[in-house]
């Protein structure tokens, strides 16, 4: 497994993986920064506003970003006709495990950047809302879990179709529907795994049309939603592994 991970890192050389994953985080933070964070009326619930805003941004940005990461990771093997050689050198389990490990590391970057960005926004704009480490931690784990779910799903699509268009197409579709799903009935939203950036939110919002002011309030952590995402992650991973194990090359 270690040697396969080393090989994955070698393959990532000149594939510009790091700029891509950093770019995803920067894009999400820049978008979140367009909210009126410095508005004096916002400072009292600054952190809640950032977490809520980032969840909306993630619903748009992350599905396509995860599709790009997932398909790039497998596309390199398809383009290089490499599977028939790799499968004679190492076990399929080790090769798949290394892909999953590298992919997970790449997926981890954006939530970490968002975590750091949220803290940075608090310092820069001097939020008066007390920082809740639990809410931040919850946001981080939920974002990571949904990102990982989408990434593994896109990786599985790439494995199944070899052509990267279905994976990228799904990424575009999920990104477009992810945003709208946030404003649809909760029962419907819960059926869409890529909308779980919203379902796992621990912050609620009320918009007063007369004053045009949004207020944010904490809601109980939807643990069941995180459990659903983690379970789906496991299922998708198992399906991907089954594909790799059984696919004839």
């Amino acid at each position: 497994m270690a040697v396969c991970l080393w090989a994955e890192l070698k393959k990532a050389h000149r594939r510009h993986d790091l700029p891509v994953v950093l770019g995803i985080g920067v894009l999400a933070l820049c978008w979140a920064n367009t909210m009126k964070l410095s508005d004096p009326a916002s400072l009292a619930y600054g952190y809640s506003m950032v977490l809520y805003g980032l969840s909306i941004v993630n619903a748009v940005v992350m599905p396509l970003s995860m599709a790009v990461l997932g398909s790039r990771l497998w596309d390199v093997e398809v383009r290089g006709s490499a599977c028939k050689l790799l499968y004679t050198l190492q076990s399929r389990g080790s090769l798949f495990g290394a892909k999953v490990a590298l992919g997970f590391a790449e997926v981890l970057v954006a939530p970490l950047m968002e975590l750091a960005g949220t803290l940075a926004f608090g310092r820069i704009y001097r939020f008066t809302e007390p920082l809740s480490p639990a809410a931040l931690g919850w946001f981080f784990f939920c974002t990571l879990a949904v990102n990982a779910l989408l990434f593994f799903f896109e990786l599985m699509l790439s494995l199944f179709f070899e052509n990267q268009v279905p994976a990228l197409g799904c990424g575009v579709l999920f990104s477009m529907t992810g945003l709208f799903a946030m404003f649809m009935p909760p029962a419907f939203t819960r059926l869409l795994p890529w909308a779980y950036y919203a379902v796992t939110l621990s912050v609620g919002m009320v918009y007063d049309e007369s004053t045009r002011i949004s207020t944010f309030y904490p809601i109980p952590y939807p643990v069941w939603a995180l459990a659903v995402v983690v379970a789906l992650c496991g299922l998708v991973l198992m399906a991907g592994w089954r594909l790799v194990r059984r696919k004839e090359v």
Partner: peptide, 11 residues
């Protein structure tokens, strides 16, 4: 060496 040579074009 099966069918076509394997290799990564960016390396």
């Amino acid at each position: 060496l099966i069918e076509s040579p394997s290799g990564y074009g960016h390396l």
